[in-house]
Write a protein that binds this DNA or RNA. Structure first.
Lengths: 104, 104, 104, 104
DNA sequence: CAAGAATTATGAACCC
DNA sequence: GGGTTCATAATTCTTG
C-alpha cells in the first residue's frame, strides 16, 4: 500500500491526542486509530514471516526431491507423524473394513 | 554429461541402492536414512515455527478484540489490503496479455 | 423382527444394531455394504461426469485457439467475470460489518 | 431476464455481419466478437454444470455422514480406487521403507 | 517433462 | 459442539 495515504506518525500522534478528548466515545481518529494501525502492522508483519517460512519449507521439499526422495511419500510420512498413533490405526482399520464391505 | 552433475531422480535412486555397501551406517533398505531424517527434522522444525506465528497472530486478534475492535472487520480490512496489490498485478498482466494478443 | 431379516449370528445382530439399522443381508463386519457401495458408485459416477465437463471445457479452449483467440487472455477474462460478483458481495458484507461495528 | 428484451439470434447475426465490414482487420465488433462471446458463454455454462456436480457430490458426502460413515475414510477409499493398484502398492512400500529408515 | 500457476480439497477457527 | 466460513495444502493443468 502506498505510503502517501498514511500521515506520518508524529503528526498522527498529535492529531490523535487532540481528537481523543473531542470524540472519546467512538474513538475514531483518536488513540484507537493508532491502536488499530498497530494491530494491523503487527499482524501483517507476522504473516510475512509466516509466508517466508512456507517458502523455506517448499525449498526443502525441492531439495529432498533432488536428493532422490519421493516428495508425495515424504508428505504422507509427515502427515502420519502429525497425527496421534491411535488415530492413524483407527482410520486404517476403518478403511480395511470399508474395503472388505465393498469387496476390494 | 559429467558425472558430477546431478542425474535425474530415477538414476539417483538406483545409485543410492548401488552405494548401499559403501555407506552402511546411514543406509537403511537403500535409503539414505540420515539425509531423510535431516529433511524431516528441518521441515518439522519450520512447521513448528510457522504454527507459533499463527498463534501469535491469533493472540493479536484476541488483544484487538479486548481493545474493543470488531475482529471480523479487522480481518476483512487485512484481506482487502492483501488483495489490492494482487489486483494491481493482475491488471498489469492482463494488459501484457492484450499487448501480446495484438502482437505488440 | 421378521425372520427373513435375521442376521446369521447373534454377534452380528448386536453389532448391526449398535451401528445402524441396516439390512443384515448386506452387512459386512458391521458395515452396511450395499449402502456404502451405493454412495461410492454415485460419487464416482458424478466425478466422471465432472471430469467429462472439464474435458469439454478444454476442447472449447482448443477450439477458440484455432479460431485465433489468445487462450490466456480468454481465461483471464473468464476469471474477471467470475470475480466481479464475488466483489459486489464482499462490499455488501463489508458494509454490514461496518454497520455492526458502529452498532447499527 | 424476460425474453422480449433479448434480440433473437437472427437479428444478432445481421448486426454482426453489418459491423464486420466496418472493421474487418481487427475483427472487433464483427464476427470475431460474436465468436468470442459464444466461447465465453459455452465455457461459463459448462463451468456452472461442473460446479453443480461438485455440489451434488458434497451432498452425497453429507448423506453418507448422516448414515454413519466416516467421510474422511470414504474419501481415502475413493482416492485409492482412482489410483492404479501398482501405484498404490509402490507408494505404500516406499512409505514403509522411509518409516524404517527413520526408525518409526 | 519439469516448473509454475490455477483450481479443488482438506483442515482449522469462529460463531451460534 | 456442529455447522459455516476462511486459510492452507494438494492436486491438476498448462506452458516453455
Amino acid at each position: 500500500m502506498p505510503d502517501h495515504l498514511a500521515p506520518d506518525s508524529a503528526d498522527e500522534a498529535k492529531k490523535s491526542r487532540a481528537r481523543q478528548e473531542a470524540d472519546p466515545e467512538s474513538n475514531v481518529g483518536g488513540i484507537a486509530a493508532d491502536r488499530l494501525r498497530s494491530f494491523i502492522d503487527r499482524i501483517e508483519r507476522l504473516e510475512e514471516e509466516k509466508k517466508a517460512l512456507g517458502n523455506d519449507i517448499k525449498d526443502i521439499f525441492a531439495e529432498s526431491k533432488s536428493a532422490g526422495f519421493d516428495v508425495a511419500v515424504l508428505k504422507q510420512l509427515l502427515r502420519i507423524r502429525k497425527k496421534e498413533p491411535a488415530e492413524v490405526e483407527e482410520q486404517e482399520s476403518l478403511l480395511d473394513l470399508y474395503k472388505r464391505a465393498i469387496g476390494m
